[in-house]
Design a protein around this nucleic acid. Structure first.
Lengths: 225, 225
DNA sequence: TTAAAACTCTACCAATTGTTTGAAACAATA
DNA sequence: TATTGTTTCAAACAATTGGTAGAGTTTTAA
């Protein structure tokens, strides 16, 4: 009880501080003092600060990917032979994402960490996440491809990342945006509210008409929607 | 000439390093050595590292806001009495953003800096940017409000930030995404290409149908921040 | 009870951080 | 030439960083 208590206390504190201030701005002394744990405990249990960062991510991403894989399994079973509609895929992803903070700290922290992983040029992190959790994303995009057969591959690639940007940006900067929104529009904003707002936007964005082809000798395809 | 040379060399180097690695991960020695300038020059010319960061932003945002203000002036003149269509507003903003790197370093650096300003919880930066450049954004959103009268205020607020996330996320992480896109789809991707792709997506997202009725007695979820 | 393994602690390390100093070099004016 | 104000420079500053050593403590299992 006592030994694993230290590990989880470190992880619990680290994820909050990382999410609030980034990796470089959060020192081990910051973490250990707030967690009321000895400084050396981090290096003893995790080996290094890098390893601690990866451990923080794993604690979120491991259950998420597992959950997401089984959710996609179920979807493929209930839709054998048929194409899974885009709305269903997005809905499933949203549900799976929302299921994470039920057992972990908060969705905000989760998204903020994801945002950091993208923006903060921590080379080791990107590599670690890519090769550890790339499979689910590949599987998901393949299903999206089947759900949107009229979309050129490149176009779908970009639109998926457009929407990834929307979600990560919004949910990771949630607190600041929420403050403004509540001050200006006197509206209580919950995460589920935001997801409800996001759904029609994301669907419309994915189904938007194709951009007009460039005129100057462009070899791009010019299908109209 | 000699003194301003030092200042601009510092700014030129700092903006690239900041964009690549973030603020905390970039030391003054990193900047000054790469700029072949004495370490003390930063504190002499700018006063502190914080002030240097703000100076880097000002060099991008000052000409941008100025340009954007005059562009909106012209729009209001050519549309006196009429409502400026959403597409025109977005087009104007895109054009203004694209005009910046023509004289400064690159659009990628600009966007990456903006992304850092949002994600990196540098308190002083957010405050500085908000109170220094908040006017243009307010003016722009007011015009967008007139262009989308059917959209509830709160909904428009969130959708604008959704799209802000899309643009900043995509353009600031451009290099990595471009690598993947070119490898997988053998397609040369220019910034103007991306903007062309972004336009129909953003328009569709702003014009998306409203989310289904919100049940006011919604269950405040287990989102214990 | 015993010994080994797991863990925590204090104290320290070398390295790096932002910032400051005071002297030297420079430029311009008188 | 002498005297300004401005700018550069090497050196040092105090503070903080991630990491480590080694002795002490607790837990585990035989």
């Amino acid at each position: 009880m006592a030994q694993s208590d230290t590990v989880t206390r470190i992880l619990d504190t680290a994820e909050v501080l990382f999410a609030e201030r980034g990796f470089a701005e959060t020192s081990l002394r910051n973490i250990t003092s707030k967690a009321r744990v000895n400084l050396a405990a981090v290096n003893y249990h995790f080996g290094s600060k890098k390893a601690l960062i990866q451990a923080v991510f794993s604690r979120y991403l491991d259950p998420f990917t597992q959950r997401f894989h089984t959710a996609l399994d179920e979807l493929e079973v209930t839709h054998t032979g048929q194409v899974i509609p885009l709305e269903t895929l997005l809905e499933t992803m949203a549900t799976t994402v929302l299921a994470v903070p039920a057992e972990r700290n908060s969705l905000k922290v989760f998204m903020r960490l994801l945002g950091l992983a993208y923006s903060q040029a921590q080379g080791h992190l990107r590599r670690h996440i890519q090769q550890e959790y790339g499979d689910v994303f590949t599987r998901f995009t393949e299903l999206v491809r089947k759900a949107t057969p009229d979309l050129p591959d490149a176009e779908r690639f970009w639109r998926l990342h457009f929407m990834l940007g929307t979600v990560i940006f919004t949910l990771s900067g949630l607190d600041a945006l929420r403050d403004i929104a509540e001050k200006d529009y006197h509206e209580q904003v919950s995460v589920r509210d935001l997801v409800r707002r996001l759904r029609p936007v994301v669907v419309a964005a994915m189904n938007a008409p194709l951009p007009l082809a460039l005129e100057e000798g462009n070899h791009a395809n010019a299908q109209a929607s």
